[in-house]
């Protein structure tokens, strides 16, 4: 076992703006003939490298379109970097969007097992956590209703409960802390704190320097896909505040 939970090694991600979105053969050939297929390359990430020790909590900051979400997606394994590589250790709970693995025709109960299976957990393992998940999500009798009848708050609450109940080793949070009402928000922050004291590694995207300072001990700033700052969260947050003022 290495001592790093996440290692990003010269990660670059290129998108081809013209090639994407071509999904019919006709359009493809028209563009091929007009030689429009290889225009408009766009690097969402350029040579980003960092290492995150186990138990560290890193805030990811940057303006809109700086590549924060792309970075999180490459770490979660959803996107494969064009260049470089990402290495992670341990069970990752990617909360890029809460309840992304849900099937809307399934009931809440069935979705618990489905969602946990996408993280590699067996039915038996989840059975033991089941009551805890349902209780934390505050769904009560709705748990047997199909997810499509849930409000977005209910979906997020269930997603959050599952992802945090299985005791993941790495948490990837893309501004999902604003889940549910004020009471649930407080409850979810308490749960995150208890996970952190157990030594979970956190990657946290936020625009709020206050939150990053409160939750994280490390932070990075991305600007147009490049890593411009990497260090202790207090220093980096101060830098980010200045960047915001200068803008």
């Amino acid at each position: 076992m290495g001592k790093y939970a996440i290692e990003a090694d010269h990660v670059s991600m290129r998108f081809n703006l013209n090639k994407e979105g071509v999904d019919s053969a006709k359009e493809y050939f028209i563009r091929l003939v007009k030689r429009e297929l290889h225009y408009n390359e766009f690097w969402a990430l350029k040579d980003v490298s960092f290492k995150l020790k186990k138990g560290d909590r890193m805030g990811v900051m940057g303006f809109n379109g700086a590549g924060k979400s792309t970075l999180l997606k490459t770490i979660a394994g959803v996107l494969k970097p064009t260049q470089g590589r990402v290495h992670t250790e341990g069970i990752i709970a990617p909360m890029l969007e809460l309840g992304a693995g849900f099937d809307s025709n399934y009931s809440g109960r069935e979705n618990i097992f489905l969602y946990a299976a996408t993280m590699g957990f067996s039915r038996k393992f989840i059975q033991e956590k089941y009551d805890e998940i349902v209780e934390f999500s505050e769904l009560g009798d709705f748990i047997d209703a199909p997810i499509k009848s849930y409000s977005s708050g209910m979906r997020s609450r269930l997603g959050f409960s599952i992802a945090t109940s299985v005791k993941p080793e790495v948490l990837i949070l893309d501004e999902v802390l604003s889940v549910g009402d004020a009471a649930f928000k407080e409850k979810s922050e308490r749960r995150l704190e208890s996970l952190m004291s157990d030594g979970v590694t956190v990657l946290f995207v936020s625009h709020s320097t206050d939150r990053v300072e409160r939750i994280c001990n490390k932070a990075i700033i991305l600007t147009q896909g490049q890593l411009v700052a990497n260090g202790d969260s207090a220093d980096v947050c101060a830098l980010y505040r200045n960047m915001v003022l200068d803008k």
């Binding site: 979660a76 394994g77 959803v78 990752i92 990617p94 890029l96 969007e97 992304a100 693995g101 996408t118």
Partner: peptide, 9 residues
């Protein structure tokens, strides 16, 4: 697609 975009499997 919604799952593929958000979760690695």
């Amino acid at each position: 697609s919604s799952m593929i975009k958000k979760v690695y499997v």
